[in-house]
Every structure is written in C-alpha cells, then in structure tokens.
C-alpha cells in the first residue's frame, strides 16, 4: 500500500503559528558549521579533524563507507555527543559550550537540551516512541520542549502529519505502521519543532526498496522549501539530484567536498572513485 504524497508545504507559518525558522534572514556566512571536530572512543579516533560548512537553504550529502565517522559527525553536530576538540557553529554562534571564568566548558545536559531543539534529527531506525501513537510522537516535542498546550500541539501535529501524507494514520502506534510510514512520522516529529536545520542519518537504509522513494521525495520537497540539510546517505541519485555539495568521508576525515557534478564526474581522490564504483 502506498501512502499519498505530501499535501501542501512542509514549512508553513500557518502550521507553526510562528515564522518558519529555517527561512529567517540570517547573518552572512554558514548556517551550520563544523570546525576541526575530533572525537575519540577509547583507542579509536573516529573523527580526526572534520571541517565543513552548510549555507542557509543548502543540502549537503555525506557519503562514505561504514565506519568512516559519518554518523558520529552527525551526532556531534546534533550535540548528542560531546566533541573532544573543535567547534559546532549555528548561525555563526558556537553551540554546546558556555564560558566559565574565561574558559569554555561543555553545557550541562539540561542546557544542551535547549540548543538541540533548534536542530532536527532523523534516524536510520526511526526511533519512534513505541508507547505513543503517531500523533503522540509528533506532539511530544511540542508539549514537553516547546511548552505548547495539548490542544495547540494536537493541531500542529495533525496538520504536519497530514502534510507528510499520514492524516489517516494518526491513531496508529509505531508497531502498526510500515517502515516508510514510521519514517514519515519521525520527519514530522522533527519538523514541528520548527528547526533551523535538519540532519538525516541514513534515513532510507532501513526501508524496503519500494518505500525509499516516498521518503526521498519528502526530503526533496523540504530542500525545495529552503530547509538547510545535512544528509548521510547511500542514495547516490538523491545526492546528484538534490545536494548542493557532496562530501566524501573516510577514516574520520573529509577527503572530498565538491558540487555534485564535479564530485560524481571528476572525483579528485582515488578513494572516492573506488567508493563510487562500489556503490553503483
């Protein structure tokens, strides 16, 4: 069974009841930026100095073999993992840290929570809350983080679920939804927070092949509407079509960062060429 496509805009002032954060005028420079990120787990260094920036409204696709540090990089950007060294900047402002007696120290978990709510994240395995309906999942951030009333949250969540094509499924629990439907709920759950940027961690890798297209088309729609996105993916077609720039990661480093035409037609690195041959 295929779900209806999206209805109306995903980013809509009338749904949020406030201006669309992703479309706000911003200071010049990158909207989201990583500067020299280092991350180590025990003896293995997963990120070894990762730097890149995403312009407002741009889509950055991240390719690379498993274990290259893609997911870890995304989690560091989402402030879910503290970095050992380096900075994450949102709208030019360094996030995840505060100044204390002239030194920068990591924020407390409670303060980090507030900063995280500006960046939406979608996971490979959906990670919906199994004890809540589709509607309950989408309402969670609105009531518990944004402080909306139940009635307000319900209206916003219903509206967003309808726009990702799930108006008929709002009373269903995650276990009663297909993978594609679950991922739509997860995207709606992140979007209702009115985020400034969205991070996708292999959003279609856990889906049956026939469900991949639906999720990719929602992401394409989001990109068209001007959402700033970083997408870790193996979908080369999506990267070619939608991304403004494509990054290749290997061994905890970015080894290539280029516009898609250049990236796919004339990759500079031998490693990138080999990888592209393997995934094709």
């Amino acid at each position: 069974m295929s779900d209806p496509p999206t209805h109306g805009h995903l980013l809509d002032e009338s749904v949020f009841g406030e201006p669309v954060a992703a479309a706000q005028a911003a200071p010049a420079g990158f909207l989201l930026e990583a500067l020299d990120l280092h991350k180590r787990y025990g003896h293995s260094e997963v990120l070894r100095g990762v730097s890149f920036g995403v312009n407002r409204g741009d889509v950055k696709a991240v390719l690379g073999p498993s274990g290259s540090g893609k997911s870890t990089m995304l989690r560091c950007l989402a402030l879910l993992e503290p970095v050992d060294q380096g900075e994450v900047r949102l709208e030019g402002r360094r996030i995840g840290v505060r100044e204390s007696r002239g030194r920068l120290v990591p924020l407390s978990e409670a303060a980090l929570a507030r900063e995280r709510s500006d960046i939406g994240m979608v996971f490979q395995r959906f990670n919906l809350f199994p004890h809540l309906t589709a509607l309950g999942n989408v309402m969670m951030g609105l009531t518990e983080v944004r402080g909306r009333s139940q009635a307000q949250a319900r209206e916003i969540a219903r509206n967003m679920l309808a726009r990702v094509g799930l108006a008929e499924r709002e009373t269903f629990y995650p276990s009663e939804l297909s993978g594609g439907q679950q991922q739509r709920v997860a995207i709606a759950r992140a979007l209702v927070m009115n985020p400034k940027a969205m991070l996708f961690d292999e959003p279609t890798s856990a889906l049956d092949p026939e469900l991949v297209g639906g999720i990719l088309s929602i992401m394409e729609e989001l990109a068209r509407e001007g959402m700033t996105m970083v997408v870790v993916t193996h979908e080369v077609g999506f990267a070619k079509r939608v991304a403004d720039r494509v990054i290749m990661m290997d061994g905890g480093l970015i080894i290539e960062d280029a516009p898609p035409a250049e990236f796919f037609e004339h990759p500079k690195q031998e490693r990138t060429r080999k990888f592209l041959e393997a995934v094709h």
């Binding site: 989402a78 879910l80 978990e109 409670a110 929570a113 507030r114 900063e115 995280r116 709510s117 500006d118 960046i119 939406g120 994240m121 996971f123 395995r125 990670n127 919906l128 809350f129 199994p130 004890h131 969670m140 951030g141 518990e144 983080v145 997860a186 759950r189 992140a190 927070m193």
Partner: peptide, 27 residues
C-alpha cells in the same frame, strides 16, 4: 530499552528528567 529511544528524545531537546519520565519510564 533501545538506546535509540533516549537518543531520539534527547535530539528533540527533552531535558534528562523528561527523557526519563516521558520516554523511558513508560517502557
């Protein structure tokens, strides 16, 4: 309880107390 549950709740911006009370405890 799958680690992804805590991760998703934190990514939404929920405080540690809410992550536990609204997501972990019911499960």
């Amino acid at each position: 309880i799958d680690e992804g549950q805590r991760l998703a709740a934190r990514a939404l911006g929920m405080s540690p107390r809410k992550v536990f009370g609204k997501v972990i405890l019911p499960q």
